[in-house]
């Protein structure tokens, strides 16, 4: 079995007085592509934010490549939810992608031409080269998401966290993103994706983490993504099956 790249040990998290996550224990192995699945309010985004220390945990520890976040941060990539940012902000697509390099550029220094070239390359990979100097407010939802993916690509990380990258995007963008995720996996990188569409889980992910306040089940898709376990995660509400698609 591959090296453990993410180890979450007995993690608890809350917002104000509401307990959101409890007793979270996860080991993620290198080269896996994991879908994080669960109903609304299950704490999927909170899990990612708490792992990345964007939200302070009540207790518990997280290790990346057997090291704390501070030491491993250069090897971690992150795609926040598209709705979390202000798309009216005055900047263009290329500039947003360049932000992916800020961690490596370091304080006080400005991005070089080489950095810009790298960012452009990533945009091109996402099929967005023609939009490099387009204002981000003028991009469609799918294009904005591609820009976010390109920004994650320039981070050149070994472990990626993506919060609903496929939410509200067009079919072409969904295919483009999934191709990139498969490529990352083929390169031995590890990717965790918060995902909401149960219909596509089996096609997209080799591992699944079923979450509802705590880990219901985690493992290979074939073993974990079963009718019983999904029902347990969604509290017996199975209307999604067959009804929607």
């Amino acid at each position: 079995m591959n090296e453990v790249v993410l180890n979450v040990n007995n993690l608890f998290a809350s917002y104000r007085k509401t307990n959101v996550l409890h007793s979270i224990n996860i080991d993620v192995h290198a080269g896996s592509l994991t879908g994080i699945i669960g109903p609304n309010g299950a704490g999927k985004s909170t899990l990612i934010k708490t792992i990345l220390n964007l939200h302070p945990p009540l207790t518990g520890s997280v290790k990346f490549f057997n090291e704390p976040f501070r030491k491993a941060k250069r090897r971690i990539g992150y795609v926040p939810q598209r709705g979390a940012v202000d798309w009216d902000f005055p900047t263009d697509a290329l500039d947003v992608v360049t932000m992916g390099l800020y961690g490596k550029i370091g304080w006080l220094k400005r991005p070089t031409k080489k950095d810009k070239a790298k960012a452009y390359e990533a945009l091109d990979k996402m099929g967005m080269a023609d939009f490099a100097d387009r204002q981000i407010s003028q991009l469609s939802g799918g294009q904005q998401q591609r820009v976010f993916l390109a920004r994650a690509l320039v981070q050149d990380a070994d472990l990626y966290f993506m919060d609903e990258p496929l939410a509200g995007v067009d079919a072409a963008t969904e295919r483009a993103i999934m191709t990139i995720l498969q490529e990352l996996k083929a390169k031995g990188k590890t990717v965790l994706v918060v995902h909401h569409d149960l219909q596509t889980v089996e096609d997209y992910f080799d591992h699944v983490l079923l979450l509802n306040r705590t880990v219901i089940s985690h493992g290979r898709t074939a073993e974990v993504f079963t009718r019983d376990k999904i029902a347990e995660t969604y509290g017996g509400n199975m209307r999604w099956m067959g009804a929607s698609s």
């Binding site: 934010k49 990345l52 220390n53 964007l54 976040f69 501070r70 941060k73 971690i76 990539g77 992150y78 926040p80 979390a84 940012v85 202000d86 902000f89 900047t91 947003v96 932000m99 800020y102 961690g103 550029i105 304080w107 006080l108 400005r110 991005p111 920004r151 981070q155 966290f161």
Partner: peptide, 24 residues
């Protein structure tokens, strides 16, 4: 002016800023 790009990423995308290890 010394932290220009840090201000920019902090204002545009606080979560990502935290993700690359900038102290929000």
């Amino acid at each position: 002016f010394i932290g220009f790009k840090e201000w920019k990423i902090f204002l545009f995308d606080q979560q990502f800023a935290g993700g690359i290890g900038l102290s929000v």
